[in-house]
Design a protein around this nucleic acid. Structure first.
Lengths: 83, 83
DNA sequence: TATGATTTGTGCGTATGTATT
DNA sequence: TAATACATACGCACAAATCAT
């Protein structure tokens, strides 16, 4: 795996959060399935755990994901459509 | 969430420590229960982690709280009364 | 029942850079 | 200049919840 070529002047946590958000949008991570764990993000993006945690925190704070302790972080399902 | 209206000429870490102390005194945080974590203080008071840690440090140094690593910071119980 | 792996929660220590006072 | 604070980031240890064996 190649190292990430970090764009200049970007906050890593934001960049990672955005990347995950895109993957949620394109269906890579379907609703109620886990997004990558902190450890997985550490591996994939070559960052510290704290940075990975921050990225996931952003998603949770934005309502895009929810956490189950001991299990992982999951994609928030979209609101039900009115017919 | 409103922003904190920081009183002038006060060190934030001291202010936060004092606030927690008041909550301990008024029973908001009972003995042997956790005071807010570093992260929680960052969220509540809108300060940096270093400032939050300093505040907790003050409480611990003063004997008002004790730390259990991996668990959190807890309210020091009052000394037992003699009968 | 119990053990280990995985994952999140909390805390400790440190570092760099910027801004304000 | 110095103290205070903010923001970001690195790395580690230990605790607790969950799941698989």
């Amino acid at each position: 795996m190649d190292e990430i070529n970090w764009p200049p002047n970007v906050i890593k946590a934001n960049y990672i959060a955005e990347t995950i958000r895109q993957r949620i949008a394109d269906g890579t991570y379907p609703p109620d399935t886990p997004v990558p764990s902190e450890h997985a993000l550490v591996q994939e993006f070559g960052v510290a755990r704290g940075t990975a945690r921050k990225a996931l925190r952003r998603l949770v704070d934005a309502g895009d994901a929810y956490v189950v302790r001991g299990l992982g972080t999951f994609v928030t399902p979209p609101p039900a459509e009115k017919s």
